[in-house]
């Protein structure tokens, strides 16, 4: 069962009793502040168009209040849109009837929350089967499937603990197991790791990447942290005040920030982990006496490490089909890893 992409089309959300009334005004350029001060409505999302790739991780990034949670809640329609569409397998989630929506949420989506949102009166295993229980899957089958994911996220032995007996990191493992047990195509993660300590967070990112390599679900991952976005995102969209101000791969965003706001964001990034060899290599390979060979997708950090370890200053790049496609010098590698002075 392959996952499909999600198309978010011309999506607007205006919070307030008469949101529809102001869509036109917002389209014609009314700002969030004007809308709030003159009409008492809050602009949540403005004209969002994102094509979220099938089987990949789409990251949505932005500062607090930029509309990230609002956006992700439109995909399973926990929030009603004011205008626009969210398409999955040709169906518009925004047009579904109540019962279609319940079915969609039960079988196509699963969600992980910033504050975990576990059921405090249920044990780990009882939390993990929750989605299946709602679907009406029988108990034995449900707990068999749940156990598999409990083991997979590293919680074996904790099945009968209650959430308040677990650390934050372990609670979120339960949250992840609960979502994965649902076996849905779409995984929605709203700042799922933001509440965790840096080390645990990095662990969880590794767990997620590992699982994703196996499952290839369509994941929508919300974060306010650029490092996290770059590590996880196959594609990244940046939100500000409810608008998408840039989208693309992590590398594209780091190399060509669309404006000063994003430039500020990407300044602190470890570019060596973001930019790949293929992006900065020269087209002509060196002769075959070079004994270091890299892949175009290798990151600069790896390239630099390979060359310095073998006390070389040059490397060839060979693609996965085995063809020599370019070359790289250590000094270019290092200079691409350094953040350029902003003009």
């Amino acid at each position: 069962m392959a996952s499909h992409g999600i198309e978010v089309k011309d999506l607007f959300k205006i919070f307030g009793p008469n949101g529809e009334k102001y869509v036109e005004a917002v389209k014609n350029g009314m700002s969030k502040t004007e809308l709030n001060e003159q009409h008492g409505h809050v602009l949540g999302l403005k004209d969002i168009n994102i094509s979220m790739p099938a089987g990949k991780i789409q990251v949505v990034m932005g500062l607090s209040g930029s509309g990230k949670s609002t956006l992700i809640r439109h995909i399973n329609r926990l929030i009603e849109p004011t205008a626009g569409a969210v398409l999955y397998e040709g169906d518009d989630v925004c047009q579904m009837s109540k019962s279609e929506l319940l079915e969609f949420r039960r079988h196509k989506t699963a969600m992980v929350f910033q504050k975990f949102a576990l059921l405090p009166h249920r044990t780990v295993i009882e939390n993990t089967v929750y989605g299946l229980e709602i679907q009406g899957v029988d108990k034995g089958e449900a707990s068999k499937r749940a156990r598999r994911w409990i083991d997979r996220v590293g919680l074996d032995g904790f099945e009968n603990h209650y959430p308040n007996q677990l650390s934050g990191g372990m609670q979120q493992r339960v949250g992840l197991a609960r979502a994965l047990t649902n076996d849905a195509d779409i995984l929605l993660m709203d700042e799922a790791f933001s509440a965790l300590d840096p080390l645990i967070r990095s662990d969880m990112q590794a767990v997620l990447l590992d699982i994703q390599a196996e499952l290839q679900k369509t994941i929508v991952f919300i974060t306010h942290d650029l490092d996290e976005a770059l590590r996880l995102g196959d594609q990244i969209a940046i939100l500000r005040d409810g608008e998408v101000i840039q989208q693309g791969s992590g590398q594209e965003i780091v190399l060509n920030p669309a404006d000063g706001y994003i430039t500020d964001f990407v300044k602190e990034v470890n570019r060596g982990r973001v930019i790949s060899v293929g992006t900065i290599m020269a087209d002509t390979p060196f002769d075959s006496s070079i004994n270091i060979e890299l892949l175009p997708d290798d990151k600069l950090e790896i390239a630099a490490k390979a060359m310095t370890e073998q006390e070389e200053t040059r490397a060839n790049v060979r693609d996965s089909t085995g063809k020599l496609v370019g070359s790289l010098r250590l000094k270019d590698t290092i200079s691409a890893m350094v953040t350029p002075e902003s003009p």
Binding site: L78, R105, A117
Partner: peptide
């Protein structure tokens, strides 16, 4: 939050 989670799972 817990109620929202139940909603998200289609309860």
């Amino acid at each position: 939050d817990v109620l929202e989670a139940a909603d998200a799972f289609g309860a």
